[in-house]
Amino acid sequence: MTDPKAPTIRAGENLFIAEKLREVGDLLEQQNATQFRVNAYRDAASYVASLSEPIRTIYRTRGKRGLEDLPTIGVSIAAAIAELLDSGFLSVLDRLRGSIDPEKLFQTIPMIGPSLAHRIHETLHIETLEALEAAVIDGRLSKIKGFGTRRSDSIGHSLNDMLARRRPLAHDKATDAPSIADILVVDQKSRDTADNLPSIKPHRFNESGQRRIPVLHMERGQWQFTALFSNSGAAHKYGRTRDWVVIYFERSGHPGGQSTVITQHGSPLDGRRIVRGREQDCAQFYAR
């Protein structure tokens, strides 16, 4: 479902997409991401701008695989282009700008209005459609007030339809997320170096315009990570804006994802850093 408020893209769509990809590359460079990642977006932008045929035609006739087969366009950037063609928006760009609004994003799903979108974000602390799909699959969504198994399943079907064109044709779900050890290393690094990291100015909960959120870009193994302190209403309400860390991850050939790391209170893992939704994995990790 396309957001009715999405910008209209008419002639020059290739240039519009190239501009957005180039802006991602520029922001990644400003935020000290690896030069490889910066160049990937810039090279893709230059290629798209030089295409002699509309990139939408390629997407419409050959799907995301057709985008992946283009020179300089890998799996992640193909997914970004598909998102732009489907909605006119690019979530990674909004994230890097500090202008992401998860509640508005969730409202693009049928059956999710403002109230339910707010409840999802504040309860599950997720900010992407991929993370919402994961919450459907593992049952967290159906436990939220206002959602039952039937509604959760219906939302899952809608999400699958929306995301199917963007995800790789085949992937191993068991390896879709980094290990607990890797996520906790990124979490520790983001908190230890917060005062020395580049920062973004969030649009939400920043009436004075003075607040800045540190952003860490980091590679570990095959995974690329972006970590920021949570800017959710719940984080502000409970005074956890310097405790809860939202970590986005991706790697070649796999869908992107998101985890939130917090300090646990009132459980056998009291005082430990844990990954929300993967508490059992965390318990096994600390037991080792």
Results as ranks from 00 to 15, higher is better:
183 I>N: 01
41 Y>E: 02
187 D>S: 14
152 S>C: 11
60 R>F: 15
134 A>M: 05
40 A>C: 10
274 I>M: 00
48 V>H: 02
52 S>E: 14
242 R>C: 05
30 Q>G: 08
101 D>T: 01
257 G>K: 11
159 L>F: 09
13 E>N: 11
4 P>H: 09
62 R>C: 09
65 R>A: 09
132 L>G: 06
141 L>N: 04
207 E>A: 15
121 H>Q: 13
36 F>Q: 02
2 T>E: 13
200 I>Q: 01
250 E>Y: 05
101 D>M: 11
264 Q>F: 00
61 T>M: 10
230 S>P: 12
236 H>L: 14
239 G>V: 14
213 I>W: 05
52 S>K: 14
162 M>P: 08
145 K>R: 12
133 E>Y: 06
207 E>H: 09
65 R>W: 01
9 I>L: 13
187 D>I: 05
167 R>K: 15
126 I>G: 03
101 D>G: 02
253 G>Q: 09
163 L>E: 12
204 R>C: 03
269 L>Q: 06
15 L>F: 05
48 V>M: 01
268 P>N: 10
34 T>V: 05
67 L>W: 09
110 P>A: 13
236 H>P: 05
70 L>M: 08
107 Q>V: 06
259 S>C: 13
238 Y>E: 12
207 E>M: 08
183 I>W: 00
157 H>L: 13
138 D>W: 08
170 A>Y: 10
151 R>L: 15
173 K>W: 02
29 E>R: 07
130 E>D: 15
125 H>I: 15
107 Q>G: 07
64 K>P: 00
189 K>S: 08
264 Q>Y: 02
89 F>D: 11
114 P>M: 05
93 L>A: 07
193 T>L: 14
203 H>Q: 06
175 T>A: 11
138 D>Q: 04
114 P>W: 07
26 D>S: 06
80 A>V: 08
166 R>F: 03
186 V>A: 06
234 A>S: 12
269 L>S: 07
